[in-house]
Design a protein around this nucleic acid. Structure first.
Lengths: 154, 154
DNA sequence: AAATTTATATCGGAAACCTATGTAAGTCGA
DNA sequence: TCGACTTACATAGGTTTCCGATATAAATTT
């Protein structure tokens, strides 16, 4: 009824997201590091594997990313006191500063371009973010989710 | 009060877009080829440099992408009859089929996840797409328009 | 305590980019 | 018409970002 082109729209969301990522990357920030920093900012310290799942990349990839970020001084990697196998990756002040810098640039880029469109309100931006967030919601299978039954507790 | 967190939202748009791209890539489609195919589908045949600008990548990168797509049989590259320096890259039927396949997968992924959210309507999805499209609008500087070359003599 | 699972690291390699630079074809001014 | 740009594209060489396969060590299970 009101949504004859719903499938087309669903696909467009992914296509345009890809173009936005290229725009941002080219403009000011490599996306891989930013994704990791923002995940840590949202969730607090995580192990490497949990980070990889949150970013939907492989564990070796995340190991490499974390090492880079450690070298840059944006995160620390400490042994997890509760589990000697694991580590805990946490943002440093410097990392938080960097994340703030990227966010400012992101915001400038997006808001500047949106401002030229009088037909789109700030509420529409909020809606767009909600939609993206919904699609990414962790309640959806983060791929490789083998823990089917265990849920809810702790 | 209408937009206290506007800056935050603007930045989130980019961050979540990056995560969506990773989700899609991991799920079913490498994004680089998809971007090129969808640009050609929207604009019709283009030269390599024009394609690079539309995709906001460097010209050598696009040369490589196009070569790959030619090998896959998804596009053709023919000499431009109007300009012997240039070529014209065009979708093949096979390329259109592939694009349709990817779009179906994109759509399934997005709509399936959105469907679980009763608080988000199809209209909201349309709004999200509009916002992304607005940010990407070509009326905005497509970067690399660098031929200002104000350097040079006198 | 052996077998299994879990958390990371390492290795080797592929994909997707980039900058710098070369070449050939158009354009333009004197 | 001839040089001087400019434009379109290719190639070379390198970086970033990612992957699967595999090793190791700690926790867990049987």
């Amino acid at each position: 009824m009101s949504t004859p082109a719903a499938e087309s729209l669903s696909s467009d969301l992914a296509v345009y997201a890809a173009r936005l990522v290229r725009l941002v990357r080219r403009e000011h920030a490599p996306s891989a590091a930013t994704r990791v920093l923002s995940i840590l900012d949202e969730t607090g310290p995580l192990g490497v594997t949990a980070l990889a799942q949150a970013d939907r990349c492989s564990q070796p990839t995340m190991t490499g990313q974390v090492n880079q970020l450690v070298d840059l001084g944006w995160v620390t990697k400490q042994p997890n006191p509760a589990d000697a196998r694991g580590s805990l990756v946490a943002l440093t002040d410097s990392g938080r500063t960097e994340l703030r810098r990227i966010r400012r640039l992101n915001a400038a880029l997006v808001s500047e371009r949106l401002a030229r469109r009088t037909d789109l309100s700030p509420d529409d931006l909020a809606t767009a973010v909600s939609v993206l967030r919904a699609v990414l919601e962790p309640s959806n299978p983060i791929s490789t989710a083998s823990t089917t039954s265990t849920e809810g507790s702790s």
